[in-house]
Amino acid sequence: MSTMAFGALQIAFDEHVLRPRPWTLAQSQWAQQLLAAAPTGPVLELCCGAGQIGLAAVAGTTRSLVCVDLEATAVAFCRANAAAAGLTDRVEVRHGAMDEVVGAEERFALVIADPPWVPSTQTARFPEDPLLAIDGGDDGLAVARTCLQVVGTHLAPGGSAVLQVGTEAQLDLLDLPAGEAGLALLERRVLDGGVLGRFGLPGSG
Rank of each mutant, 00 (worst) to 15 (best):
D69M: 09
E128R: 13
T73N: 12
G136H: 12
S28W: 06
H95D: 05
L132N: 04
R63L: 03
C47E: 05
G193W: 14
G49E: 04
G86E: 02
C78Q: 09
S160V: 03
A36K: 01
G54W: 02
G137F: 08
V151S: 00
S120Y: 07
G203N: 13
S120I: 02
H95N: 04
L132G: 09
A26H: 15
N81H: 14
Q33T: 12
L9P: 08
R145Y: 03
A59I: 14
G193Q: 12
R19A: 15
R189E: 14
G193S: 13
L141K: 04
G137M: 04
L171M: 06
L70I: 15
G140E: 07
T123A: 13
H16I: 12
P127R: 09
A184V: 01
A133C: 06
F6V: 02
H16Y: 11
A57L: 13
G49N: 07
A97H: 13
A56R: 04
A82E: 07
L55T: 08
A26E: 13
D99F: 05
P157F: 11
D135E: 10
V151F: 00
A74H: 05
H95Y: 07
R145Q: 09
A84E: 10
P202W: 03
P127A: 13
L174K: 03
G60I: 09
S28A: 12
V68S: 00
P157W: 03
D89Q: 13
L65E: 01
L46G: 02
V195D: 11
G41D: 04
G159S: 04
S160F: 14
V150A: 02
L183T: 03
F13Y: 15
D139H: 06
R63V: 03
G49T: 09
T146R: 14
A97P: 15
A76E: 10
Q10Y: 08
V75W: 05
L185W: 09
C47M: 05
F13G: 08
H154F: 00
G86F: 02
R90P: 02
D139E: 07
L141S: 09
A133Y: 08
G194P: 03
A169G: 01
A124N: 09
Q27E: 14
G182N: 03
I134W: 09
L25G: 11
L34G: 03
L18W: 06
D89C: 14
Q170F: 10
R107H: 01
V190C: 11
V151Q: 00
L131T: 11
T153A: 09
A178K: 04
L70Q: 11
R125E: 12
D135S: 04
E15R: 15
E100K: 15
L186K: 02
